[in-house]
């Protein structure tokens, strides 16, 4: 008798839990407002992308064409697959007349990047960030090798 009670109890509990599941999916089926899918090419103008989205690495420049990269190559060391390469040069500072290390080219191979965010974490001066731009498809891989520092850009004062 006790066995039969357990047996029927199992069936009833099973039916109840299945009913709960069907209630939820039934709710989603009838309430289309819950759908969060983006209609991508149409909503390009007013697309919502989260703050933590990782599109590509960019070197931020301010309005005076100055960046914050000191050429320490911490990002180059942090990168697990050799995506970043920093070519530095020595310049003579016009004020102090001392030799100073600055970047010549910040080379970024977008095609190899895994968007792991380690370079951004490693950067001591917060010079590089991840942008939200994600439309990177190309017919040729040459444009994917990018030089991030703009032509004639300088190191921002007071960064080192």
């Amino acid at each position: 008798m006790r066995y039969l009670a357990i047996y029927i109890g199992t069936i009833l509990r099973a039916i109840n839990s299945l009913r709960k599941g069907m209630k939820l999916t039934g709710y989603y089926f009838t309430h289309h407002k819950e759908i969060v899918t983006h209609q991508y090419p149409e909503n390009r103008k007013k697309m919502f992308i989260g703050d933590r989205f990782r599109g590509e690495v960019i070197l931020t420049h301010d309005e005076n064409n100055e960046h914050r990269c000191t050429g320490c190559s911490a990002c180059e060391i942090a990168c697990p697959n050799g995506t970043i390469r920093i070519i530095s040069k020595f310049e003579i500072d016009p004020e102090t007349q001392k030799k100073k290390k600055t970047i010549d080219e910040f080379v970024y191979h977008l095609g190899m990047c895994t968007f792991c965010n380690l370079c951004i974490v490693a950067c001591p001066t917060d010079a590089i960030v991840m942008s939200k731009d994600f439309e990177h498809s190309m017919y040729d891989r040459k444009p994917l090798t990018k030089i991030l520092n703009k032509r004639g850009s300088k190191l921002m004062k007071g960064v080192e």
Partner: peptide
């Protein structure tokens, strides 16, 4: 379609 609506897709 049924699968999509039940999984909150289009």
């Amino acid at each position: 379609k049924v699968a999509a609506f039940m999984q909150i897709r289009l």
